[in-house]
Design a protein around this nucleic acid. Structure first.
Lengths: 199, 199
DNA sequence: AGAAAAAATCGACTGCGGTCGCCTTTTTTA
DNA sequence: TAAAAAAGGCGACCGCAGTCGATTTTTTCT
């Protein structure tokens, strides 16, 4: 439809996000001011707020976009017939590497998504559901192959795996585990989760 | 030693924390300004910053104090000879109830502790270690009773349980699980973690 | 006790996130 | 194509977190 206007808006939005990636990565999220970001993007300060409601929303928008993209890529990378643990490692290490590559973005995003001020919006839940929808077939297939109990709900299985993922994230952010050790740690914990803690 | 001065400082600190609990609980953390807090506490704005480095540190100090207290209480409540799952429920539901009672404090605290901007300080690690020290005997005793595998490191066992605790917290903050359902959900997930996901 | 030193209190000030109303650009209407 | 309407861009302005140096209170020294 409206060509000039729409195209320009898309370009400006991209430009803000690109500038944000550049500055937040270099100087940190809190250390970068909106005015600075506006200058880098070559626009006025107020304009940024007609694209994003808050400074954090810039991070949220960027991460949502990236995750969308990353997950669409993943469908190609995982083979549903390989052992469950291998598939899980591919999926969750991809997410994890994204975080290690964008520490500041990941931190702000996780604050909002994991311990939000208000319960998640309908839209945010949708993002989460899309995520589960991607994983459910994998778990179901693993159940069929006898790798997972069939008396457990898929939601619970997803929860256990997600819990380990969260644990790895916090271990990394707190400095308890070094970046290069995360892969091993995650594999160990996921295997233990599958096998159980009791003798 | 110095009586008047020290006593007065302790009283002022307490007063700031009390005012913070009152205002943050009533109006929310972000919605309460430092000036307002200073007024409530009957002191100047600048004074608050000679007791706490940042607004968030007020929350951190309060929560650290409370957790210290809560954990010392717990030693009395738990009987190391009862089944592991019962002990875990007592400990983690106590922590959890504290969070539900102080949602705003918990949220800010969790942001700082779970996904911190900088790796945790030596002091913060100590708090975490104290926590583990409290739990290790429980896990070790459960291993001796044959409730837990003995080939797993206690650190890993602690990790699995903590992961479930984090999961419950995020489910609550995101609105995915209602307050009254948390107990059941946590018990279910912990039992599954102990039993394992594979057939 | 009185002077000097040390510690604590304070609020004006700075910088930043976010708002708002005015101005410019684009689109629609006739 | 010209005028009206709509949308977008903008930066001065507001409120608040956090700073700093001047002032008051307490402690120490002689």
């Amino acid at each position: 439809m409206s060509s000039i206007r729409e195209q320009h808006k898309i370009r400006t939005r991209r430009c803000i996000l690109d500038s944000a990636v550049k500055l937040f990565s270099r100087k940190g999220f809190e250390q970068t001011s909106i005015e600075e970001l506006a200058r880098e993007a070559g626009i006025g300060k107020g304009t940024i707020y007609s694209y994003f409601e808050t400074k954090r929303d810039i991070v949220k928008a960027f991460c949502d976009d990236q995750l969308d993209y990353a997950r669409s890529e993943l469908a190609a990378k995982t083979n549903p017939e390989t052992p469950l643990i291998d598939q899980l490692m591919i999926i969750f290490m991809a997410d994890f590497n994204y975080v290690t590559d964008h520490k500041e973005f990941g931190r702000v995003y996780l604050h909002e998504k994991v311990f939000p001020k208000e319960p998640l919006s309908e839209e945010d839940f949708q993002v989460q559901n899309d995520y589960f929808d991607m994983l459910y077939p994998i778990y179901r297939r693993a159940q069929e192959r006898g790798e997972l109990r069939t008396d457990l709900e898929l939601l619970h299985i997803s929860g256990h795996i997600y819990a380990i993922y969260l644990l790895m994230l916090t271990c990394w952010y707190t400095g308890m585990i070094a970046t290069e050790d995360i892969g091993d740690a995650m594999r160990t914990m996921m295997i233990q989760t599958i096998e159980g803690l009791k003798p």
